[in-house]
Design a binder for these strands. Sequence first.
DNA 1: CTTCTGGAACAAAGA
DNA 2: AATCTTTGTTCCAGA
Length: 923
Amino acid sequence: MSFQHEEEEFDFSYIFEYGQDVQKEPERDAYSYTPNVSLSLPLGVGNPCLATQYHTLQSSPIISVSSCHQMGYNLQNDNHAASGYYFPHSLRPNGAPALESPRIEITAYSQCPENEVEESSTEDHFIKRGVNSIVTLTLPNADGYRDPSCLSPASSISSRSCNSEASSYESGFYNYDNSPQNSPWQSPCVSPKGSSSLLSCPHSGGPAGSPYHSPSTSPQIGAMAEEGWPAQHRGSRPNSPSCSGGSGGTGGGGGMGKRKYSFNGTSYNQTSCSPNQSPTPSPHGSPRVSITDENWLASTNQYTNSAIVAAINALTTDGVVDMGEGIPIKTRKTMLDHSPSMSLKVEPGGDELGPDGEICHEDYPSRLALKKENYCAGFLDVPQHLYSWSKPKPYLSPSLPALDWQLPSCSGPYNLQIEVQPKSHHRAHYETEGSRGAVKALSGGHPVVQLYGYMESEPLTLQLFIGTADDRLLRPHAFYQVHRITGKTVSTASHEVMQSNTKILEIPLLPENNMRAIIDCAGILKLRNSDIELRKGETDIGRKNTRVRLVFRVHINQPNGRTVSLQAASNPIECSQRSAQELPLVEKQSVDSYPATGGKMMLLSGLNFLPDSKVVFVEKAQDGHHLWETEAKVDKDSIKSSTLVVEIPPYRNQRISSPVNVNFYVCNGKRKRSQYQRFTYLPPNVPMIKTEPSDEYDSRGTAGLPMHSKPYYSQSRLTPIMPVSDSDACLVGGYSPCPPRHAAMPTSSPSSSPTLHDLSPVAYSKCLPSSPSHAVLPGPMVAPIQETPGHPSLAHPASPDHNTSLGMLPSQGSPNHLNSPGPHGYHPVYAKSSPSSSPVSHPSTPGGTAESPFMQAYSPSHAAANSSHAGGSSPSLLSEDASPPSMAITVKQEPQELDQMYLDDVNEIIRNDLSSISVHTHA
DNA sequence: CTTCTGGAACAAAGA
DNA sequence: AATCTTTGTTCCAGA
């Protein structure tokens, strides 16, 4: 049901967007997340941590884990149609459509987890599972992110991308995909197979409910299938512009789309199912036929077996891989690459995962092994039989927080910061093209990320994926994927992993390097809009949705068994060739605030300013309505491509008693506007003094909507709301964070803030520290909450649309929730919580966060304790999250509550938020 | 010769 | 329904 809604929403969003880049989907994400969450195990990928967590997990029932989604799907299947919708959601978040991917369900011994899960999970579906815990392994789709792509993938003929990526993806995909977050499979190496197993094929079938279906449908391919919409596919493809000509493609056309590639045949098809490729509707008939229901079944069985194996392998290997310490980068890469590729080839068989996996293992394992041992010692200890079951779960569990969860950048002593921001423009490459290189920094170098406060000698894995940069909460970008760059010029080792439909680049964070990593190995791949939009769960539209952020995550295992997950998001990066060349971009402004009288000249620096560029100041109400708009006077004579001087216009009301946040943008034409920039008008008599904190906050918060809170939207660009933001910020934030933020932030923040609105979030991140400031603005308080959720702030200013969207979200319920600031925003809690440590977090609001789900997830024990709050154990959490939709609850409410809450205890608030998601009950 | 890019043609989607 | 504009995707060619 809810699902349907989503679709509807989808449409709406569409509409909205148009002008801006809007997207719709928050909801979905939420979904997916939720599910995942439950599972959430400690580490997703190769983390060493896994082992430990693993254990715990095992003990805990949780194992079942895997992806709730999947579970859900199954259930849904029962329901049937619903499933379809479901999937999407689930997919979205993770990327991969659960539906599509085939899953393997294993009945877990430990039911407990399940129980928990069930409980936690609001969804009925889950409940169904009820007693028996079933572990579902999702099969990864071939393409994972671009399901559709299956076709395309092939297409990717482009040599490199295709091969490498594809291969890598595939391999990776599967594993990760399975459960994006959870999937145990993820283990890179191993995974491949798993992935392969996956079934992708199967899932594809899944479109509808039953995963299995796919096969039949699938003829095409599992991969394609993923979408599960064979029909659609065809249609889609046709749709897909790409297709050549027109494609008129009709149905048959399916092939068209990516078609080319697919056909080309990659070996995949041949092999069998490889879902991935097969998808291609290859005109031929897809080779893929291979996958038939029968195959499925067979495969599934195999999978089961293989799955176990894979899981085992994963256990052994996963952790290891990440580090890659000993292995020379090149070597590793190579290895990796190969393995993936290998796997790919093999995969076709699908069934064969095993082989691939093995291969991988061999490669990695040996080296990795050492590390793993360290990390995973626990795992090893576990009895084999346990392995079989447990392991899988573990993997699943490893699943770290879902990618669409908002995490803080700092927790306790830890602070993940982006020391050097990427350039604001980076032309992404299509699969049909060669790589366009790694994302660069403004300085000409590359982005740099560093983890502060980590004193252990054990290396960690820095994860990087491409996230959205719109007003909504940060989540994996459906239309872009990270692309691993290798070569002489690349000094940083990296490894690709698929989680859900999102490709993640894993980069070692070594103590010897001060836990600092130069990100010179990350390019950005653009997926065809038509491919992605066809995906079942996908609600976002690709058109004009060309801004992304680099999202970095690190998962730190702590002695107490908990895992602290931190996340930092870069400034927005425009990935469209045209947009990068035509859209004006404001990177810095000489003045952030000024008395309402205006009159001062402000220097803007950025890109693409034209002689006829205009600067427009706008003030929006919470609801997105324009309260005020005026064109500022631009000094035409001084306009340069990179600089522009504008006179600050007087505010509409010269008698404001408190700072008013507004926005302004540079316009080169009807549809060529920069993102909103924040500006704060101060009461005329008030000295200019800006309190940074206050200003920032205020401005942000108010900006668009002064007082009110605009919900998320406003948050995004306009002003972040301080209060909420803080906590949220942390969570969300990428930047720095919380307390530290100030100190630390400087580097990053500065840049960020000026440049991108998105950054604003950063401001949030500032978080708590500013709390005082928060206090200042009551309004903000409320907003904050919402905002938190909504990264949106970042996004577009534009927002009005957003507003609508917002509205939608709530309504939408589940998925949105997740995305929506609301619930997700709360997620932050997790992060915080995990850190528990962080008093900081508390300050913000979040105190509640302390208990963050993560914690729970990671450490069962914690879960128990927390469970009450959050929804209990991780599983529950997840479920709840999932349910969130229902949660739709209302961000608004929260805000209000928040105010009080703040007064009382931020922490509680946070909890509430979380709970809210889960339930208001607590409240 | 391969990869990286910048530019731009071509075509679909919107207005 | 026709036409212009905008944007996405594919190609080409030079470095």
